[in-house]
Design a protein around this nucleic acid. Structure first.
Length: 411
DNA sequence: ATTCCACAGGAAACAGTGGTCC
DNA sequence: GGACCACTGTTTCCTGTGGAAT
């Protein structure tokens, strides 16, 4: 007896299992995979290779800065170039070690150095050689740095530190006054064997202004700038991925054009274009469509936005969530009023309220994420205040917060 | 011209946590 | 076991802002 499968989940599972899925190769639909599919970056690859060639000759290459907005392929190109160089270096003789970290994700100087140390082989557990041990906390920054130099020297490594979003590190340094970048750029003076090269990657062309002039001089020995992709280039990049990811004729021209247009409008971001295409393909697949059309792309764009909002909302601590709920209660609400409402909400759920200073700070942070918007209003004798309003649908907020136990009484 | 209000937001201090070092 | 380190989240204190009211 044959049964007709009507359940959409079963349909999707069956299609995937029988190999009839719309998407042939999912990996290609993630920007950070497949560095060979990075197009239009030959001059930058050449420039980067040129600066790093001294490694092959066993001498210290220049430190360098790489600029370019999100989705211009900076990181992929660095990975590609370094892995090619790595292959050329005879194994074991004088190895290259690439250590990558993102300064935005590593929110502390200590964390950033530990991340490098671990990639170079420093252990998280106690070892016989005490200097090869790098605990995740407890040491002074300078001791962590000493141990990193020790491991480089001991293994005679050519270490290449890639610091993505290095502008965040510059901020940290400014805040703490501990100039790790200066130490890194001058490390070679302390190393008798092995070397340390720094590649700083940044989206912000002006971040250098915040650095110590001594660091600028050694860090800007070479600079590589990745320009934004234009509409045509994005189209070609998408096309290259489409050919690998789908069977022929699956993506309609109009959909491709819209994807490229949307991404190039947002500062030539190829990552965004590929994300858009992936989500559109998933939507098309879910709706049992045989092709990917403009409508799928539009829906994908909307979905990506909504997902961003939900992730941001979920990540907030309780008091930020209370503030969002306080702002949500009126169409436009001043800082003072928000604080009063927030205090009332705290009382309702029996939480100790924070000070107004802290609340102002939190409101600015939430505003930065785009979930609320604020405008300064000058009220003369009644002083200046900031009026906040919510920028996303209250339904999304309620839906996202409904699982939070502490908030259930006030929703 | 001066005063006033309701904040914004910088700086410094503090409490607490989780670790190492000697 | 006490000194020390890094870090986060917070409080306290303070100065600056700008248009209406006086």
């Amino acid at each position: 007896m044959s049964t007709t499968v009507t359940d959409p989940i079963d349909r999707l599972l069956d299609a995937a299992q029988s190999g009839k899925s719309l998407i042939k190769n999912r990996d290609v639909l993630h920007f950070t995979h497949i560095p060979d599919l990075i197009l239009h970056r030959d001059p930058e690859q050449e420039q980067l290779t040129q600066s790093l060639i001294p490694i092959l000759m066993n001498s210290r290459p220049s430190n360098l800065l790489v600029y370019g907005k999100t989705g211009t392929g900076k990181t992929l190109v660095i990975q590609k170039v370094l892995s090619k160089i790595q292959k050329r270096v005879e194994e074991g003789s004088f190895p290259i070690k690439l250590a990558y970290t993102n300064a935005k994700q590593e929110t502390t100087l200590y964390g950033l150095l530990v991340s490098f140390g671990r990639q170079l082989g420093l252990s998280g557990q106690k070892t016989n050689d005490e200097k090869m041990w790098l605990p995740s906390t407890g040491l002074s920054i300078s001791e962590v740095f000493n141990r990193i130099l020790y491991v480089i020297s001991k293994h005679e490594t050519n270490a290449v530190f890639v610091i993505d979003e290095i502008d965040y590190l510059a901020e940290l340094i400014q805040k703490t006054g501990k100039d790790v970048l200066y130490q890194i750029t001058r490390a070679n003076e302390r190393l008798e064997t092995g070397s340390l090269t720094l590649i700083g990657v940044s989206n912000d062309l002006t971040f250098k202004e915040r650095l110590d002039p001594r660091v600028i001089s050694s860090l800007s020995e070479e600079e590589v700038v990745f320009t934004n992709y234009n509409l045509n280039q994005i189209k070609q990049i998408l096309n290259a991925r489409i050919q690998v990811a789908f069977s022929e004729g699956i993506v309609e021209d109009a959909a491709l054009n819209l994807c490229s247009a949307m991404a190039s409008r947002e500062s030539g971001d190829a990552r965004r274009a590929i994300d858009l295409l992936r989500v559109a393909a998933e939507i098309a697949e879910r709706t049992q469509s045989a092709k990917i059309n403009e409508e799928h792309v539009r829906k994908a764009s909307q979905k990506i936005e909504e997902n961003k909002e939900i992730v941001a909302l979920k990540s907030y601590p309780l008091h930020e969530k209370l503030l969002i709920l306080a702002v949500m209660k009126s169409s436009e609400i001043s800082t003072g009023e928000t604080y009063m409402t927030y205090k009332a909400l705290c009382k309702e759920i029996r939480q100790k309220e924070l000070t107004q200073r802290r609340v102002t700070q939190m409101l600015s942070e939430i505003e930065m994420s785009g979930i609320i918007s604020g405008r300064i209003v000058h009220q003369g004798t009644h002083g200046n205040t900031k009026k906040f309003k919510i920028t996303i649908s209250p339904d999304i907020i309620k839906e996202t917060f409904k699982d939070e136990l502490a908030l259930q009484d006030i929703l």
